[in-house]
């Protein structure tokens, strides 16, 4: 089985699905000849031609808007937005059109498209290249939000996302792209959406995370009897897996990269307060970035939760 990093795994998923399904097309800025600024789409234009792997003009609203039309017509577009911080011109398309097309046409039209985009801080990038604003899209009923944490899951989740009948935002951590390799099977396997996974079992405290932060979390929990959950799909999230764990441990720490206020950690926290209050032994803790404008590289290590902050929250929870 090949050992692949996340870039290669996503590339493989795209290539295999395009070979299987002629309706899958790829479009975005620099995705063709250049193979994408992170090389995710490398080789696809050579293999499938410029009609199927399209270098578009520099226009995010155009990319997503055109993808919606393609999807409604019957194709399965996989659009790339170069960085999550540049998705904002397309937010009208995502929220007012992609999210609602099924509902507004009472199911006559659907929008099976995927928007892939790199996210996250920690790579010493310029301004706007480090955002983690996943919560915005979780606040749009009709949109699914998927955030893989490793090459194996990235491939399986991307296949599920492309085959999903509804629009999916697929967020790829730039930090994870080349961080590690793991066994990624060639050929078809899927990791279902809307399912979380228990990465590590434990009895004392449930730690929930996703994307890059999962890896910080796994480092931080050493020495604690922690059950670690990789959420994978944020919206709709897997309530069953999360609640089952919390029923067992009675303590929860949620670790996320976004600024705390209005983050997806907040939604989880509120859901847990509603559903699990009587099972809780300790207050729910959110470990998130600070509520400040995302700083440039000189300060970014202060901004994101480090293992120390996660451990502090774990120790605090264990006081109860």
């Amino acid at each position: 089985m090949p050992q692949l990093n996340m870039v290669q795994a996503i590339n493989l998923a795209l290539r295999e699905e395009m070979e299987r399904d002629g309706d899958v097309v790829v479009l975005g800025e620099d995705v063709g000849k250049n193979g994408g600024v992170f090389r995710i789409t490398e080789g696809l234009q050579t293999q499938f031609g410029p009609e199927r792997v399209m270098d578009t003009p520099l226009a995010e609203s155009g990319i997503v808007g055109a993808s919606i039309g393609m999807a409604a017509y019957g194709l399965k577009p996989v659009a790339e937005i170069q960085f999550l911080g540049f998705i904002y011109p397309a937010v009208d398309q995502i929220s007012n059109h992609a999210a609602r097309l099924r509902s507004r046409s009472r199911g006559r039209y659907t929008c099976p498209l995927v928007i892939r985009t790199p996210y996250g801080a920690g790579i010493r990038a310029p301004e706007h290249h480090s955002e983690s604003c996943e919560a915005i899209f979780c606040h749009m009923p009709g949109i699914k939000v998927v955030m893989p944490s490793s090459p194996y899951y990235a491939k399986g989740l991307l296949l599920s996302s492309i085959r999903d009948p509804d629009p999916v935002i697929f967020l790829e951590s730039t930090r994870l792209y080349r961080l590690m390799k793991e066994d990624v099977p060639e050929g078809e396997y899927v990791v279902p959406l809307e399912q979380a996974r228990v990465v590590q079992e434990g009895k004392d405290v449930t730690v929930i995370s996703w994307g890059f932060m999962l890896h910080r979390t796994l480092q931080a929990v050493e020495g604690f009897d922690a059950e670690v959950i990789d959420l994978m799909t944020l919206n709709p999230f897997d309530e069953e897996t999360v609640y089952k764990s919390v029923r067992k441990t009675g303590r929860v720490v949620i670790v996320c990269e976004a600024p705390k206020t209005g983050s997806f950690a907040s939604e989880l926290s509120a859901s847990l307060a509603e559903e699990m209050m009587l099972h809780l032994k300790a207050p729910i803790a959110r470990v998130a970035s600070y509520d400040v404008v995302l700083p440039l590289p000189k300060l970014e290590d202060y901004y994101m939760p480090g293992t120390e902050r996660i451990r502090k929250a774990l120790a605090e929870a264990m006081k109860y």
Binding site: Y290, D291, V292, P295, K298, R309
Partner: peptide, 27 residues
């Protein structure tokens, strides 16, 4: 000289918020 982490909080708003003040206690 390095700005130090407090600099992140100084300009998000004209006036620092209550929540930010609490967050600053981490430093």
């Amino acid at each position: 000289e390095h700005a130090g982490p407090r600099d992140m909080f100084a300009y998000t708003y004209g006036k620092i918020t209550g929540r930010q003040r609490k967050e600053l206690e981490d430093f």
